[in-house]
Structures are given as structure tokens and as C-alpha cells.
Amino acid sequence: MTGNGVVERRMEKTVRKLIGDKVDCPFSVEPRTGRVQAGGAMEFCVAFQSQTVGDFCKLLTVNYETGESVHIKLHGTAGEANVYLEKNQIVIGDTFMGLKRESSFLIFNKTKHIVNFRWKRLPDPAHDNVEIERLKESFEMVKDLEMKKNVPIKQLCHVERNQHEIVCDRIYSDEIEALKQQELDFKDRNFILLPGFGEIWPDNWIEITVIFMPDKAQNFCVKAYCDILGAEHRIPLTITGVGQGPLLRLNVRSLDAGYIVAQAVHSYEIVVTNSGDIPGTVKFMPSCLSFGGKICCDPKKLHLNPDDYKTFLITFNSNTVGNFEENVKFLIEESHEVLQFMLK
């Protein structure tokens, strides 16, 4: 919020007006210095921008080079903008690895003003400052190393050493400024919020799209924070989703071999089907048998496209006489899910 003021000078000579450091936050003034002609006037603008809710009173001091001072009382009240999210939690259904699933929600602006919003990675400006300092330290180390290795540039006679240091300092200063915004904005390898920033018109709303792109077969949960102009605190949004691996299944859970002859080789066909939307690879997992004997599988590995099915040939033989139960296991490579059936 801004307001205009006028300084008049009723003297016969021109004087200089100084405002600069004579007003405290959340108020600011522009221009901070100026000249007032004899009998003339000068307009300046006072801005009020508070990061917290409450009433604020400050004094604006106008100092003249003649030693005179004028004190202006400033008063401002900051309130919470009526801007809110339709949902504070988004749950996205199971999604196959490598594919995308979308969900959406609204941000409502019930004020009479245009408000800006931006999705942040951290919950508040205090955490932002800590992260910025960490970035500065990291870049400062890189900058110091780069300044010391100016040999290639010097050999090519491009710049002298002191000029090289100036160039490096400027480059890394620009990099820090650019990286600040990139690092502090929300970003995640599995979730995207679109748009990531924008403005909402008075008494209006904007639709936000959440895109889920799992790269693993596991549960995912992240938090994003909506930084809204006019809101004292960032609004948290929790997003959850489940990554689904290839949907491969065996045609049996238990295989009863019945009475078999010791030392003889017995064969069984095991069918694997892919009823999901992405391809998958399943391989046999050899293991030591508690009953003794040996289980072999041909082939060792199968690759199945969606709606495909293929067959493993399992062979079993043992020199031991008696009842037996053995778990035969297979591994889905993409999701590390174990499939198994009982051979008895």
C-alpha cells in the first residue's frame, strides 16, 4: 500500500531535503533525497508493506540541510488476506512407474485485490535465509578455487590475474542470485505443480494441476508451501502418491507335485502374466533347498509386455525320501517385488 506526501519550503533560498534512513520498516519512502526550490514543493511516496499482521506506527523524519527537521506520523494496519486452498492434502492414486497421473485443485482469492502466489520448497522465510547462506558458502568455495586456477586464461592472454578475479566474482555473484530463486521454489523429481507461480484476480480463483511421475515402486509424500502476497504464513500442501511397478503374476500359489520318484527329474510349467500397463522383467532366484535336491528354471529370465504371458519350465529332483515343501522365488527387476509359489 502506498501514499503520497508533499514537502513545501517557504524560504527564499533553495535547500536540500534528506529522508533516507529516517523511517523504519514496514514503511519506506521514495525518493530518499531531493531538492526543494524556494517557494516550491516536492512530492514523495510512502509505501507500507508488512510481513506480519498488526498495527504499526512509525515516525518519518525529514531533515533539511539548514538543521531543521519535520516529523510525520505514519500509521498502517496489516490484515490477513482471505486467500485459501481448496484442499490442503492431495492423494493421487496408484500410478505405474514411468507414467503420469494428474489431479487438480483451486486457490481462491476472496479479496478486492490482485494477489500473487508462488510455490515454495521451505515453510517460511527464515528457512529460506538458512538455505541461501548455505548456497553462498558453497559458491564461495567454488569461486575461491576458480580464482586460483587462472592458468589457462593467462596462457591465452585473455585477461590478467586481477581481471580474472573480477570476472569470476561477477559470474558467481550472478549464479548465486539466479540459483536462489531456483533452489527456493518448489521442485521434486516425482511431483510437479503447474503453474508454479502467478496472480489471482479479485474474487476469482485459479486451478493448480499436480502431476505425479513415480520412478520407483514405493509410497511418495512431499510438502509444498504456497507463498501468497497478503498472507502472513505460507499455506502448506501435502501431496501423496503410490508408485506401481510392473503387474506380473504367477498362475499358481501352491503346486502339489503328489508322489514323485526319488532321483528322477520332474518338470512343471509356470505361467507368468503381465496385466499392467508397463513392461516388466522377472527372473528366477536360485536358493538352497531345505529338503535337499535341486530346482532349475529355464529360461532364467522373462521380459513381458503389457497383456503378455510367458512360461517358465521348472525342474526338480532329489535323492531324499519323504515329504517336502520348498518356496520357489522370482524377482521383478524394476520394482524388486518377489513372486513365489510353494512346491510340495
Rank of each mutant, 00 (worst) to 15 (best):
residue 105 F to E: 02
residue 164 H to K: 00
residue 84 Y to G: 00
residue 19 I to M: 08
residue 72 I to W: 07
residue 267 S to C: 08
residue 90 I to D: 00
residue 264 A to C: 11
residue 38 A to V: 04
residue 329 K to D: 13
residue 244 Q to K: 14
residue 178 A to K: 11
residue 262 A to H: 10
residue 297 C to F: 01
residue 19 I to H: 04
residue 44 F to R: 05
residue 227 D to S: 09
residue 125 P to C: 05
residue 190 N to F: 15
residue 85 L to R: 04
residue 26 P to F: 03
residue 265 V to L: 14
residue 67 G to A: 03
residue 343 L to A: 05
residue 57 C to Y: 12
residue 251 N to C: 09
residue 18 L to W: 15
residue 27 F to N: 00
residue 123 P to Q: 04
residue 159 V to F: 00
residue 2 T to K: 15
residue 125 P to A: 04
residue 135 L to W: 10
residue 297 C to G: 01
residue 166 I to M: 00
residue 60 L to R: 06
residue 160 E to R: 06
residue 162 N to Y: 07
residue 156 L to W: 02
residue 170 R to C: 09
residue 256 D to Y: 15
residue 190 N to S: 14
residue 133 E to P: 01
residue 261 V to C: 13
residue 64 Y to V: 08
residue 295 I to E: 02
residue 191 F to R: 03
residue 18 L to V: 14
residue 193 L to S: 08
residue 238 T to N: 04
residue 38 A to T: 06
residue 275 S to Q: 08
residue 18 L to Y: 15
residue 233 H to G: 07
residue 336 H to V: 08
residue 301 K to W: 09
residue 92 I to H: 03
residue 294 K to N: 15
residue 152 P to N: 03
residue 300 K to Q: 14
residue 136 K to F: 08
residue 95 T to N: 05
residue 293 G to E: 04
residue 273 T to P: 03
residue 320 T to G: 10
residue 236 P to N: 04
residue 288 C to M: 14
residue 12 E to C: 07
residue 329 K to V: 10
residue 163 Q to W: 04
residue 35 R to G: 12
residue 164 H to A: 00
residue 138 S to E: 05
residue 8 E to M: 13
residue 20 G to Q: 10
residue 81 A to R: 00
residue 63 N to M: 12
residue 297 C to E: 01
residue 149 K to I: 15
residue 120 K to E: 13
residue 111 T to S: 09
residue 191 F to N: 03
residue 44 F to P: 05
residue 28 S to C: 06
residue 203 D to V: 14
residue 240 T to Y: 05
residue 326 E to G: 07
residue 208 I to N: 03
residue 189 R to A: 13
residue 94 D to A: 12
residue 326 E to I: 06
residue 18 L to I: 13
residue 23 V to Y: 00
residue 252 V to A: 11
residue 249 R to H: 14
residue 149 K to L: 09
residue 306 P to K: 01
residue 107 I to F: 02
residue 271 V to C: 13
residue 156 L to E: 02
residue 295 I to D: 01
residue 162 N to V: 02
residue 238 T to M: 07
residue 22 K to Q: 11
residue 181 Q to H: 14
residue 182 Q to I: 15
residue 142 V to S: 05
residue 331 L to F: 04
residue 27 F to K: 00
residue 45 C to D: 15
residue 93 G to L: 10
residue 79 G to V: 10
residue 209 T to A: 09
residue 103 S to K: 07
residue 13 K to D: 08
residue 188 D to I: 02
